[in-house]
Design a protein around this nucleic acid. Sequence first.
DNA 1: GACAGGACTGTTACGTTGTAACATCCGTCC
DNA 2: GGACGGATGTTACAACGTAACAGTCCTGTC
Lengths: 160, 160
Amino acid sequence: MAARAAVHAHTSHNHRACIDDALATARGLCAERGVQLTPLREKVLQIVWRSHKPMGAYEVLDELARSHKSARPPTVYRALDFLMAEGLIHKIESLNAYLGCIEAGAPHSGQFLICRQCGATEEIVDPRLETALEAAAGRAHFRPERKVVEISGLCARCGK
Amino acid sequence: MAARAAVHAHTSHNHRACIDDALATARGLCAERGVQLTPLREKVLQIVWRSHKPMGAYEVLDELARSHKSARPPTVYRALDFLMAEGLIHKIESLNAYLGCIEAGAPHSGQFLICRQCGATEEIVDPRLETALEAAAGRAHFRPERKVVEISGLCARCGK
DNA sequence: GACAGGACTGTTACGTTGTAACATCCGTCC
DNA sequence: GGACGGATGTTACAACGTAACAGTCCTGTC
């Protein structure tokens, strides 16, 4: 697969379709794997997908609570844990926040470009960068499992 | 500068000298820059340098409090913020923990290999990886400022 | 139908990480 | 001496995350 940026956070796009796509993909993957994408989990996934900005767990909780009175921190964290385990969302470590995954189904650690101005965060899937990471670890005789790559700065629009 | 790993966390080394080196470098840099490496800040730097494992802020606080009764969370966070601003320590985002910087003076975002088994964390300075990060950002017309690279897995010793 | 087991969710309480805001101290410069 | 700026003291709280146990609901088995 060629290097690409599958989400153009700043490009005007039909975000409704963007969410619907993500939900449909998620439903398909979970069915295939025999795991349960329950209404609660789907709702959380939908909330995370409402923007291309990483969302804090408590922000998700506030949103969820509007339709789900009994929501508490564990409610949200369990759903987020499930979604991460299935590769449907990523955690942005430098923000303690969560973002919908644009490559659901292909297990991978994400690589992220985080705009410090507008907050929009783009997931990139760059094989050359992946190779460089593997090589760097290899030179240190290190066996990588999870790779966190989070580049913050200014996006194309904000950096003009 | 060639790619290298400046700290061999697993190699037996004279860690006392390792700390002393770091403190001497820090004193020199701060003097040069006209900023104050106060006794409190130096103590915190020393504590962070006591191991090659990232240390949580509250862990630093516990240690600091042994010799400094009035230490409170803000005491530690202020010192850590100062040390980060001067490039003397790094924050490991995926662990919410702090680690002495092995390239103090050369402003850089670190690249880290974090062993999930023994906890030892090695900072690497790999120009090829740096180039790959810049290139990946460039292809997305993104202007990078801070680059977080944290690879966790098994170190050479634990992965055998 | 009973019931055992497992997956999911509800609920309470608490642990960890980080910060706001204001007070105090202390050296420097005029 | 008095204003100031930087550093630290102090209290309180905000934000992020989890342990532990209880209840619900479905399913497979007898």
